[in-house]
Design a protein around this nucleic acid. Structure first.
Length: 915
RNA sequence: GCCCAUGUGGCGGAAUUGGUAGACGCAGCAGACUCAAAAUCUGCCAUUCGCAAGGGUGUGAAGGUUCGAUUCCUUUCGUGGGCACCA
């Protein structure tokens, strides 16, 4: 009987579906365990081999936990709102709802073929109104809450109103621009009150910059802007201020940092989040303009360098630029502003070779020594960070140094010998000079002295600053959640709970509205009713979806408290690092808000995070001689002028092109001629992102059809460590397939049929089994699936060598294998006479007694170089070992009669003789 | 530019806390079985010197710490990901 994977996989997938084997109940006596994948965006291209990498890992882990006796929640859904669906709709004239529906059904079909254990009864889609109803509901919760700095928690906005009504704005809770008494507050108009409250709400509306393309009449995503012009059409793009919605994530900055100590994320992931939040401690110092009352606030982490300030630099967008520019400088400043307006923040920061800037003509006075300091503007200062103005200290900061050199600004030295005149020295260790009352002090000490002094003189204060900005929460797009918000005479109104969901109207055209408003502005009724015309961003739905899976069908609330209390945090969350600072921070923030409002019982969503690497495409190229239909092999291409064309990787065996397939690929190539090397056409290779347009995608369906889901699953895991990125290569899949066939042959012979027996296992066989249990169990626990697969291979190879066909051994191997290759395991499990499903078998127990050893083959090195190995009892002491080692011929040869300096003996590891 | 990751045979990769570098697999080579092929099985497989025994060199590069470094430190180069409206 042969291993007919196709039949077996169909049979068991059907059986599991019929028996509802993956339906999970919220009531169970077993302990709960929640394993979650980052849900996919259902793109039109369907699943490629990169997608399932994380899904297979989480599936293995879920099944493993189930075998270990847990009630495992392992759901799947779709992040189905987003920009690409809308672009696709514009291009093809299909409605995003239709294409999304179609794409999801393709995805599901593909996922099911791989044999995942999802509970599809819990499926969610963010674009489903039954789902986004609760996204809107949660948005209103955010809108109606504020962050109380005294309690460090979100509270209902009512509590803030209460404070204002009774105490007015008092210092420890009010934002700096608000000063009013209770009486004044009570006398404010409703509009003024709402405007003030807007400055506290966790979801709020304010003016912010967007990428604006005048010619397309639309706001563009960063993705759609390439080198300062629109990707479509190459039209100029500038920054434009527009009313936007934001989430006040900055209020949660400290808690987002602190929370990292309570979760099991990789250190690098935590580091990325900390860097993104970018907390720094320093001071805000005030420089007053010469001959004017105007003040410029700068933020600095190095107030100790105050006497080394040689100039100030403002961001081009700084609000004072207009006011302070002198008439002589007006023209050049204006030109510079035009120049800077066209550049993105990233371009402005990365272009360090080219130093640009412009003098405003104005001077400020250094508040500590009355020195006159010129004020410049330059693109390397960003308006969004700190105060949008810096004090430049060229001897201590390299960018300031280069700027000063470039514009011939004299440089003061305040660190004596530590500054060599050729480059800045950013040290904190130097002793200060030319710094008046700081002379002779170490810079570290001076930092707090300067802050204290500034506070005393009223020219500055201690300040904690964050790089992170509040999260932009509106998009001038169609395919997203509508805001449950109405505008009436500039006043913001919210919909009532019973008016939700506010459904997205069905549009036929998705072009931008007037003045860069979203497409919804084109809907007369929508506009007339005053509904918000922008929609929520892609991350709205994904910020809380893990909660909905716990209670997906609830019509009364987003997730019943009982359900979230039962399941608790996501125990293991698997997904790519590309979400490090977006989705992962937003969902952490939402969780904290929901916890503060007592809607859930935990304040971090994900207990453990596993980052799977990205599977890259391995592109293949052919080279066509310019103006001809002749293709030249890679090795000979230097002799010609060529066009490089992507060719479908599926037509290439390694690097050798299958010419017949290539000719059939596109009509243009049917008559193509080839210049070969060694009778072969060799393609060029490059690692790129996997994408349809590069013809480097590999469809999992093809591999599942050819080798079966079990082989596919194990091969993806066998490729390498889960967290590592690597280019896809189908070549090795045969090896895994051979392994499964070899396993099959332990039970069934192609000719003889059944060969498994019920004989008693030998010591040697038990040793093999327990070695495998130990290795595979610990590897699975650590998500080291590639080494687990290799342990299976070793185990089956060894059992084959011993001709072990014993049920006592093999059935345990099957249970171990179930998480990796569920179909073949279930089939063989039933063949050897089990009635129940292997999905609910008991994971075998490792017993160390089978692995006990009494001696070890010790490697013996001379001066750290391996020379021989000696078998020595594990009991042996240092002196016994030394005796044995020195008696060894090879060791004596290397010693050449001299006594050894030292013998290093590490019990159970190695021996090193130092000569 | 900044942040994070990463670099080991022809290829994917392995190597608990520094302790036998190259497990397992792919590809390749030689052989067995076969009329033949497929499948399967056996052996070889970092590099170099050597008939062999054995030796030299090897984990991107250069230094350092150590009895001993793929592993720790410093510098440097390459590659991948992210950088706020892609998700």
């Amino acid at each position: 009987m042969e291993y007919n994977f196709k039949e077996i996989e169909e049979k068991w997938q059907k059986a599991w579906k019929k028996n509802k084997s993956y339906t999970i109940n919220n009531n169970s006596s077993k302990p709960p365990f929640y394993v979650l994948d980052m849900f996919p965006y259902p793109s039109g291209a369907g699943l490629h081999v990169g997608h399932p990498l994380g899904y297979i890992a989480s599936d293995i882990y879920s099944r493993y936990k189930r075998l270990k006796g847990f009630n495992v929640l392992h759901p799947m859904g779709f992040d189905s709102f987003g920009l690409p669906a809308e672009q696709y709709a514009i291009e093809t004239g299909q409605h995003p709802a239709d294409t999304t529906e179609k794409n999801i059904s393709t995805f599901k079909k593909q996922l099911d073929k791989i044999g995942f254990c999802y509970d599809w009864e819990r499926e969610i889609r963010t674009s489903d109104s039954n789902y986004y109803r609760w996204t809107q509901w949660l948005f209103l919760k955010l809108f109606k809450s504020w962050f109380n700095p005294l309690t460090q928690k979100a509270e209902s906005i009512e509590s803030l109103i209460n404070i204002f009504e009774n105490k007015g704005s008092f210092k420890s809770i009010a934002r700096s621009k608000h000063h009013f008494t209770a009486q004044e507050w009570n006398d404010f108009s409703l509009k003024s009150k709402l405007d003030i409250l807007m400055d506290y709400r966790l979801a709020f509306s304010a003016f912010g910059e967007v990428n604006w393309c005048e010619i397309l009449g639309t706001v563009l995503a960063n993705d759609e802007v390439v080198n300062g012009v629109s990707e479509r059409g190459g039209h100029p793009v500038v920054k434009k201020k527009m009313r936007q919605w934001y989430l006040r994530i900055t209020d949660y900055a400290d808690r987002l940092i602190d929370g990292l100590n309570t979760v099991d994320f990789s250190d690098s992931m935590k580091e990325m989040q900390r860097n993104w939040i970018g907390k720094s401690e320093g001071a805000e110092l005030i420089f007053t303009l010469e001959k004017s009352q105007l003040e410029i606030k700068v933020y600095t982490t190095r107030p100790d360098t105050i006497f080394g300030v040689d100039f100030l630099v403002l961001a081009p967008e700084h609000e004072l630029v207009e006011n302070i520019t002198t008439s002589e400088q007006r023209k050049s400043i204006h030109d510079y502003l035009v120049y800077a307006k066209n550049k993105s923040d990233r371009e402005r920061l990365s272009d360090v070779k080219q130093i640009t800037g412009c003098f405003t003509g104005a001077y400020v006075i250094n508040p500590l020594n009355d020195r006159k300091i010129p004020v410049w503007i330059a693109e390397y200062v960003l308006s969004g960070y700190g105060t949008g103005a810096i004090m430049a200290v060229p001897c201590g900061d390299q960018r300031d140094y280069l700027f000063a050199k470039h514009f011939n600004i004299p440089i003061s030295n305040i660190i004596g010998d530590c500054y060599n005149g050729n480059e800045a020295n950013p040290t904190k260790e130097a002793t200060l000079t030319n710094s008046e009352f700081l002379n002779g002090l170490s810079m570290k000490k001076a930092i707090s002295m300067v802050i204290d002094k500034s506070e005393e003189l009223g020219i500055g204060k201690r300040k904690i600053n964050y790089k992170m900005r509040d999260a932009g929460f509106s998009r001038q797009r169609y395919w997203g959640e509508p805001f449950p918000i109405k505008w009436e005479d500039g006043k913001v109104l919210t919909l009532n709970e019973d008016q939700l969901p506010l459904t997205l109207p069905h549009l036929e055209k998705y072009g931008p509205g007037p003045e860069g408003e979203g497409p919804l502005a084109n809907v007369a009724a929508w506009k007339k009713d005053g509904f918000e015309t922008s929609t929520m961003p892609g991350y709205a739905g994904s910020s809380w979806y893990f909660l909905r899976y716990m209670d997906p069908k609830n019509n009364q609330t987003f997730c019943d408290r009982k359900a979230s209390d039962y399941w608790g945090q996501v125990d293991v969350y698997i997904g790519g690092t590309e979400h490090a600072v977006g989705h992962l921070l937003y969902s952490r923030m939402w969780t904290k808000v929901l916890h503060d409002l007592d809607l859930i019982g935990f304040d971090e969503p994900f207990k453990k995070l596993v980052n799977q690497g990205m599977i890259q495409g391995s592109s293949r190229f052919v080279y066509r001689i310019k103006g001809t239909n002749t293709f030249v092999s890679n090795g000979l291409k230097n002799e010609y002028e060529l066009d490089e064309l992507h060719v479908d990787v599926n037509m290439v065996d390694g690097v050798e092109l299958n010419i017949e397939l290539f000719k059939k690929w596109k009509p243009d190539f049917a008559e193509a001629a080839f210049i070969l090397e060694n009778d072969k056409y060799i393609c060029g290779c490059e690692v790129e992102k996997m994408s349809k347009s590069k013809f480097n995608t590999v469809n999992p369906d093809d591999l599942v059809n050819k080798y079966g889901a079990d082989t596919f699953r194990m091969y993806e895991m066998f490729l390498g460590p889960i967290e590592q990125s690597k280019p896809w290569d189908t070549k090795g899949i045969e090896g895994v397939h051979r392994f499964l066939r070899k396993l099959w042959r332990l039970f069934n012979d192609d000719i003889k049929g059944k060969v498994w027996t019920t004989e008693k296992a030998s010591e040697a066989e038990l040793k093999i089994l327990h070695k495998a249990i130990k290795k595979i169990e610990s590897d699975t626990d650590q998500f080291s699936f590639n080494t687990a697969v290799s342990a299976f291979m070793v185990c089956v190879n060894e059992l084959t060598d011993l001709k072990c066909n014993k049920k006592e051994i093999l059935e345990n191997v099957l249970i171990l294998l179930t998480p990796f290759a569920p179909h073949i395991s279930e089939e063989l499990w039933s063949q050897i006479g089990n009635n129940g499903s292997i999905l609910d078998a008991m994971y075998p127990h490792f017993d160390g007694k089978y692995l006990l050893e009494t001696s070890k083959e010790y490697p013996v090195s001379i001066n750290g170089k391996l020379r021989t190995a000696i078998s020595i009892s594990l009991e042996a002491s240092q002196s016994e070992v030394e005796e044995i080692v020195l008696a060894n011929d090879i060791v004596r040869k290397w010693l050449e009669g001299a006594p050894p300096k030292k013998i290093i003996f590490v019990k159970g590891k190695m021996i090193n003789v130092v000569v």
